[in-house]
Design a protein around this nucleic acid. Structure first.
Length: 270
DNA sequence: CTTACCGCCTGTCGGC
DNA sequence: TGCCGACAGGCGGTAA
């Protein structure tokens, strides 16, 4: 399950491999991803050069000299940089093949991921409404405090809203709220300035920690070179419902919010 | 405008 | 042992 740290790790790993590479072909085996993959893509991409690779939210941005590919890994997607003599498997939906005999292979069993081509990624429908990056200076305690005023939704729902701040999935929302001692169900409009300060700091902390750990949030994620990351991030609450709180020892509670599993400590988080 | 809910998918897991 | 339903959940679209 690629969260922002996995996407960031993927970008860092692929950057030196594919930047400056010349595209030879794009081979599409299954166009039925989250959004149907454009059938024009193969034609468009022939002989284009990758000028840079970056990330916006959980999208990988492949810059082709002012044209762009937007790639999302969805729930189960991954990218690997491989030699072109390795046969694709069942869930390998497309290959971006380079002149040097290597390729970028997209694998995604659940097909929640996507790939789009655009000349103007900033105004692309998937990008234009996104809020600030959580690790940027724009995402600070004042921003979160102000934008949470008057909001009836739970604070957990708010920080998972990509119009408010991008890249915070269910796992890191639970972890950051635990770290900042805020109950997930607390109404956004009720968070204090101190809450906002603690939560922003916690979000940056857990994301940065996971990136430093090599982006390995969950069991089956592999980096583009097939390495499993350096070590797993120890999750404090996610997936630990009914287990002991690592701060106070009491029993962690698991509830559902917006149909998502939500774990917190009723004692530590208020 | 905000909020709540739907649907897309398949591998994994627990229960019988 | 094998079947089957529940679950996992990012996120845009839609309706209220």
């Amino acid at each position: 399950m690629p969260e922002l740290p996995e996407v960031e790790t993927t970008v860092r790993a692929l950057k030196p491999k594919i930047e400056k590479s010349l595209i030879k072909t794009f081979e599409l085996r299954n166009k039925n991803l989250r959004w149907p993959v454009s059938s024009n893509l193969a034609k468009i991409l022939i002989s284009k050069r990758v000028t840079s690779l970056s990330r916006r939210a959980k999208y990988l941005i492949v810059n082709l000299d002012s044209e762009y590919l937007l790639i999302h890994l969805g729930m189960s997607g991954s990218l690997r940089y491989l030699s072109n003599n390795i046969s694709p498997q069942k869930h390998d939906h497309w290959d971006l093949c380079f002149e040097n005999g290597m390729l970028l292979r997209y694998t995604d069993p659940r097909r929640f991921g996507s790939i789009h081509y655009t000349k103007d990624f900033k105004n692309h429908f998937l990008i234009k409404s996104l809020g600030p990056e959580p690790l940027s200076d724009a995402f600070d305690e004042n921003y979160l405090y102000k934008i949470s005023r008057g909001r009836e939704v739970p604070i957990k729902t708010l920080i998972m809203n990509s119009r408010i701040v991008v890249g915070i999935g269910n796992i890191y929302a639970c972890e950051a709220l635990f770290d900042s001692s805020i109950k997930p169900t607390k109404k956004a409009k009720r968070i204090t300035k101190n809450d906002s300060k603690a939560l922003v700091a916690a979000i940056k902390k857990v994301l940065e920690k996971a990136i430093k750990a090599g982006g390995t949030t969950l069991r089956d994620y592999l980096n583009p070179d097939n390495s499993p990351g350096y070590f797993k991030v120890e999750l404090q609450v996610y997936g630990r419902g009914k287990e002991d709180c690592l701060k106070c020892g009491r029993i962690l509670k698991e509830i559902r919010m917006n149909n998502r599993s939500t774990v917190f400590c009723p004692n530590c988080q208020r």
